[in-house]
Amino acid sequence: MLGGPLRSAAGGAAQVDVEAVNIRELLTGLGDAHPKLKPIIDKGVAVSIDGQIYRDAWFQPISPDSEVHVLMPLAGG
């Protein structure tokens, strides 16, 4: 699932299919499938797997039945 500007960069698709067993493969696959996503991914995104949000965790496993969201990066004060 794509949120915010990621969705528009993927041609308006709220949901895209990517074969990936971890976050690194997911982001690489997304960038390959949707080149307009690549600069956004390179600047930094967050990934939610089954509701748990990860930043910069390439090797976090993704199960076949996981719900995955790619989000804009988080910041804090």
Binding site: M1, G3, S48, G51, Q52, E67, H69
Partner: peptide, 8 residues
């Protein structure tokens, strides 16, 4: 959630 993922 309104921003996408489901809450735990």
């Amino acid at each position: 959630s309104s921003y996408g993922p489901k809450f735990g």
